[in-house]
Amino acid sequence: MLAPERIWWKPLHRMEKSWLIVAFSWCVLLTIMMPLWFFYGRQNVPATTFRTTPQKYQQQTTAFIEQYQVDTLNRLPVVAPPPDSDIYLLARQWQWTPVLQLEKGKTYRLHLSSTDVQHGFSLQPVNLNLQVLPGYDYVATITPTQSGEFSIVCNEFCSIGHHLMVGKIIVTE
């Protein structure tokens, strides 16, 4: 609180030194956990991104729906794409299109983008969350490990209808 004498460069007490060593080691461990998981973990943050435009992304999604549509649900198209393909999910105020029907244990390249404002992709109850931006085509390579019905909640505020924006992914055995 008061101004100390000029020289405050003093050796550390034994306990301070021990804590410093323990704390620093913990920081090192925290640091190496991320690359370790990057190489050995099965859940990593997708990094593939392409520039896009709302028009282009809209066209890609429409073509994708036309190609693989199998049904309609609540006036939304349901598409069942084959494994290992590029699948498109389009976010706009306040809807996720289309409904995706995937197979458990199969891998897909999921494209995410928006044609208006920012949205949030929140897969529930798996609880996986990604940010969706207009102008950016974000590609996540995903493999569902459970079957059942999953919801996509929008978890980035996207104006007044934000809480109405819920989509669906169906995973079959």
Partner: peptide, 24 residues
């Protein structure tokens, strides 16, 4: 939040949304 509830979200019952997300 650990159970998936979103921040900045008005309605976790999703009344009026096309689909529901079951909130435990």
């Amino acid at each position: 939040g650990l159970q998936g509830v979103s921040r900045r979200h008005w309605d976790i019952t999703f009344a009026g949304a096309p689909f529901k997300a079951a909130v435990p």
